[in-house]
């Protein structure tokens, strides 16, 4: 009687274990898989601004933390985060010149990207990814928006999949500025 009970509950435990593993696997958001790029050097690239008036090479920005945002004119969530990025650009990039904010539009056209930038008041450095999507591929982009927080030494410290919030921006910028101060 006792042996049967052990066997029965043992089988139940094994089945529940399998169901648990299955449920964990099915509920795991693949987009929350940690990026292998964290604590790695940010891939360098050179781009021209959307308006074509200036160009930028990421490695030239060493010495200042960089917020690298990937976006697209067809992305709804990018509309929501546009004002967040813009307000932090105004405060930390334009005014205090402590960080650089860069936006790379992917799978987009210059006309649509420009129209989006004008509509949502994006004034920070905006550029278009190459036609072959090499920048997006180099940064392992799954979708838009995605934002990378790169420290002053050019190391990726954090990646946000989905829209950024003011809380997240404040927290990450403070971390980057603190580490810059320590390095400096």
């Amino acid at each position: 009687m006792f042996t049967t009970s052990i066997k029965f509950w043992g089988a139940v435990a094994i089945i529940l274990g399998f169901i648990g593993i299955l449920a964990y696997g099915l509920n795991k958001d693949p987009k929350k898989v940690p990026s292998p790029l964290i604590n790695k050097e940010a891939a360098d690239f050179e781009v021209s601004s959307l308006g074509g008036t200036s160009s930028l090479r990421l490695s030239d920005l060493r010495g200042k933390p960089v917020i690298l945002n990937f976006w697209a004119s067809w992305c709804v969530e990018c509309q929501t985060e546009a004002h967040v990025l813009e307000s932090f650009y105004q405060q930390y990039d334009k005014k205090k010149q402590q960080i650089r904010v860069i936006g790379i539009a992917i799978q987009d056209t210059p006309e649509r990207a420009n129209a989006f930038a004008n509509q949502f008041g994006k004034n920070y450095f905006l550029a278009l990814d190459y036609e072959d999507g090499r920048i997006a591929l180099d940064y392992g982009i799954y979708g838009v928006p995605e934002t990378f927080f790169i420290d002053a030494r050019g190391i990726i410290r954090f990646k946000k999949v989905g829209g950024v919030t003011p809380q997240l921006m404040t927290q990450q910028i403070q971390t980057l500025l603190r580490s810059s101060a320590t390095d400096g």
């Binding site: 799978q107 072959d132 999507g133 090499r134 997006a136 591929l137 982009i141 799954y142 979708g143």
Partner: peptide, 13 residues
């Protein structure tokens, strides 16, 4: 999807 096409192109390259 756009990303798939880009990955395919990169593999081809």
């Amino acid at each position: 999807a756009g990303f798939s096409v880009q990955i395919r192109n990169k593999i081809g390259e």
